[in-house]
Design a protein around this nucleic acid. Structure first.
Length: 323
DNA sequence: AAAAATTACAACCGCATGGTA
DNA sequence: ATACCATGCGGTTGTAATTTT
């Protein structure tokens, strides 16, 4: 008893597409569209292919305005920075690069960029070591973390719940934006991305530009400014209202001036938004990076860890790895 | 020159998701 | 509510092309 196949595998061709098949699919879709049904399409036009295969061929190769190869340095930078912040969510990354497909980006990353980035990281670590700065940096980061924690700038449950162990982020966390990102990670336990009308913002805004709105199934939305929110304790029994409820359905951080009469409804952080007043949202989607097959790269990604101990261990391992 | 190793990338597979009946 | 189905997604594989030995 396995999963039911999506098509009759015995009567379906696999492997590379012939120019004839390409032409057939292309001309049909150009004239008639996909008809909103990929599964029925191959039979309709006499192609011995699975509907999924047709869809993939069209989206990744035949569809107009597709770019192949020749990634520019700017594109590389976008891919790297997005990978570091959101992990292997190729379709989201592809959406930021017109003409590029998720498959292409994924392949490019796997075959070249990750090596390039890791080489760069090794080089930087070597440079730090040579300058005797790494241990200093780690120590300082660790202290900053502890100081913040003792000042209750982190949620009181951070120790028992989730927090990021992003070595890349921690190591370079000497500016407000990164520290803010870290705080957000701790509150959300996942990845955050700021959008401005569907476009990624690559720079984190400062704390005073933000306000927070939260709601849960048993309460209406609550909003407060970001600093207030950082000092709010969650009710772990889920009895709190809005964002005070640990199981809040939505806790969203908005960029812009909060106006109580101008609250907009955000389904989730990924939705595009247009309108005045509040401008941007932050998504609270969970992390998917770090679960891939090459564990090394997880250190480059903002991945939540289980405890402060994990953070410390990570730091120790990092220190050991560069000895 | 040929075999082996590596790289590049198209395509496949199974699971997740969201819409709908 | 829920069962079903098409589509979307991301990990992985297969293989042609290229490079190294």
């Amino acid at each position: 008893m396995g999963r039911a196949p999506c098509c009759d595998k015995a009567n379906v061709k696999k492997g590379p597409w012939s120019p004839e098949e390409d032409a057939k699919l292309k001309s049909y879709i150009e004239q008639n569209g996909t008809g909103g049904n990929w599964i029925a399409l191959p039979q309709k036009i006499g192609l011995k292919r699975c509907g999924k295969s047709c869809r993939l061929r069209w989206l990744n190769y035949l569809r107009p305005n597709i770019k192949h190869g020749g990634f520019t340095e700017e594109e590389e930078n976008i891919i790297c920075s997005l990978y570091i912040s959101i992990g292997s969510r190729w379709s989201i990354i592809a959406a930021q690069l017109p003409g590029r497909t998720d498959n292409d980006i994924k392949n490019y990353w796997n075959t070249r960029l990750k090596k390039k980035l890791m080489a760069k990281q090794r080089k930087e670590q070597a440079a730090c070591r040579a300058a005797g700065l790494l241990e200093q940096e780690i120590k300082r980061e660790s202290e900053t973390f502890l100081v913040n924690q003792s000042l209750n700038q982190l949620p009181y449950w951070a120790d028992q719940q989730q927090q990021p162990a992003s070595m890349a982020m921690m190591m370079h966390s000497n500016n407000e934006a990164d520290q803010l990102n870290r705080l957000l990670n701790m509150r959300f336990g996942g990845q955050q991305q700021f959008y401005d009308n569907s476009q990624f913002i690559h720079q984190f805004p400062s704390q005073d530009q933000l306000f927070v709105e939260g709601s849960s199934s048993n309460s209406s939305a609550v909003a407060m400014n970001f600093t207030q929110w950082l000092n709010t304790e969650y009710d772990l029994n889920n009895n709190g209202s809005g964002m005070n409820n640990f199981a809040a359905d939505e806790v969203e951080v908005y960029l812009g001036n909060h106006h109580p009469n101008n609250q907009q409804s955000f389904e989730n952080g990924n939705e595009s938004y247009s309108g005045g007043g509040v401008g941007n949202s932050i998504s609270t989607t969970s992390n998917s990076a770090g679960s891939n097959s090459w564990g090394d790269m997880s250190s480059l990604v903002n991945t939540p860890a289980s405890s402060f101990e994990a953070y410390q261990n990570g730091m120790l391992q990092l220190a050991a790895s560069v000895e």
